[in-house]
Simulated scan of single mutants.
Amino acid sequence: MKRLTAILPFLLGACEPQVPSAEDFIPEYKGVKTALLDGDLVQFKVAMTKAQSTEDVAAYAECAAAQYTLIRGYGFARHVRTNVDVEGGVWRADAVYTISPSLPRGLKTIDAEVTAQNCAEKGIPAV
Rank of each mutant, 00 (worst) to 15 (best):
L4D: 05
T5E: 14
L8W: 13
L8C: 07
P9T: 04
L11V: 08
L11W: 11
L12V: 11
G13I: 03
A14L: 14
Q18Y: 07
V19K: 13
V19A: 09
D24P: 01
F25R: 04
Y29W: 08
Y29D: 00
G31F: 01
V32G: 01
V32L: 08
A35E: 14
L41E: 08
F44M: 03
K45N: 11
K45T: 10
K45R: 13
V46Q: 08
A47E: 12
M48C: 04
T49M: 11
S53Y: 06
E55G: 11
A58F: 08
A58R: 11
A61H: 04
E62P: 11
E62V: 12
C63T: 04
A65C: 11
A66Q: 07
Q67I: 09
Y68T: 06
L70T: 04
I71T: 15
I71Q: 15
A77W: 10
R78Y: 05
N83W: 05
E87S: 14
E87I: 09
G88F: 04
A93S: 07
D94A: 02
A95M: 05
T98H: 13
P101A: 10
P101R: 12
P101V: 03
L103I: 09
P104Q: 01
I110C: 06
A112R: 04
T115C: 10
Q117I: 12
E121V: 09
